[in-house]
């Protein structure tokens, strides 16, 4: 259903499916026009809440999508493309860097050390991926100061 409201010259348009409209108590067009006519302020409040709810829902969906992308990053080794599913089937890893990527799964692997025993960073490919993720997150939360630092770090890895 199409809902158009004009209050003090301000136009608000809303398109809702039948199920959503019913769940929000906006099914009967006649009652709507009645409410609009006799209780314009309450009606505006209700519509505002409805818009807020819908916007919030859309944001949640986006966050969930980003979360699933992040989860996918942890199920595939960026160095050798070996997947967590393959590890579960074969109990083998694709490369030494898989120890860092799938560490939580096997309860093993944190930082790697060289022969001398000194602690090294994880492989450049994994480090770059992590920086990219952090940069994306900083841009999304509009933390441009951190984003600039992360961008410079990324440039150094090139």
């Amino acid at each position: 259903m199409q809902l158009t409201q004009i209050v003090n010259g301000e136009v608000t348009e809303l398109t809702l499916c039948e199920a959503c409209a019913k769940s929000k108590g906006l099914f009967d067009p006649q009652s709507l026009s009645f409410a609009e006519q006799f209780f314009p302020e309450e009606f505006k409040k209700k519509i505002d809440n409805l818009v807020k709810e819908l916007v919030q829902h859309k944001q949640n969906e986006q966050e969930q999508a980003q979360e699933s992308v992040r989860t996918d990053m942890l199920t595939r080794c960026p160095v050798c493309d070996f997947t967590l599913e393959l590890y579960r089937k074969t109990e083998r890893f694709g490369c030494p860097d898989c120890y860092s990527v799938f560490g939580p799964e096997v309860n093993k692997g944190e930082e790697t050390t060289s022969n001398s025993g000194a602690v090294d960073e994880v492989s450049p490919a994994i480090a770059r991926k992590k920086l990219e993720q952090q940069l994306q997150a900083a841009i999304e939360r509009e933390d441009y100061e951190t984003a600039a630092i992360l961008r410079d770090k990324l440039k150094k890895t090139d």
């Binding site: 944190e110 790697t112 050390t113 060289s114 022969n115 025993g117």
Partner: peptide
């Protein structure tokens, strides 16, 4: 450059 991990 041998793959070695402090824990494993």
């Amino acid at each position: 450059d041998i793959a070695h991990n402090r824990r494993d």
